[in-house]
């Protein structure tokens, strides 16, 4: 197994996921299996292939610099879990 439990935990932290200890082994092996599958791509010869970022042959999609109406504030805040005075309200950001 290439992916360690520590790797899995690191990915979980970066993704803001809480993984119960009892399920740690399961997720670690799933992540490992996934990466092993992707690893198959390495066997394809790509020496003469340019890196591709986009699947569609589209480029230079622009809009003019013209103001359009924004959302009503009530609509913007409608799904906010917490709000105050027209602001989105969030819990403590930095640890004490």
């Amino acid at each position: 197994m290439k992916v360690s439990k520590k790797d899995m935990e690191n990915v979980a932290v970066l993704s803001r996921l809480s993984i119960p200890e009892a399920e740690a082994a399961q997720y670690t092996s799933q992540l490992d299996a996934f990466l092993a599958y992707v690893e198959n791509l390495k066997s394809v010869p790509t020496d003469s292939v340019k890196p591709t970022t986009y699947a569609l042959p589209v480029q230079n999609v622009f809009r003019e610099d013209v103001v359009k109406p924004s959302l009503e504030r009530e609509a913007a805040l409608a799904n906010a879990p917490l709000r105050e005075d027209g602001y989105f309200k969030v819990p403590r950001i930095l640890e004490e």
């Binding site: 359009k68 959302l71 504030r73 913007a76 005075d85």
Partner: peptide, 23 residues
Amino acid sequence: TNTKIFCGCATSFGAEQNTHVCP
């Protein structure tokens, strides 16, 4: 610019909070 980088919301400074926002 008059508008934001990826949408048509205004960029002017000093507007009421959360009034220059869109999806």
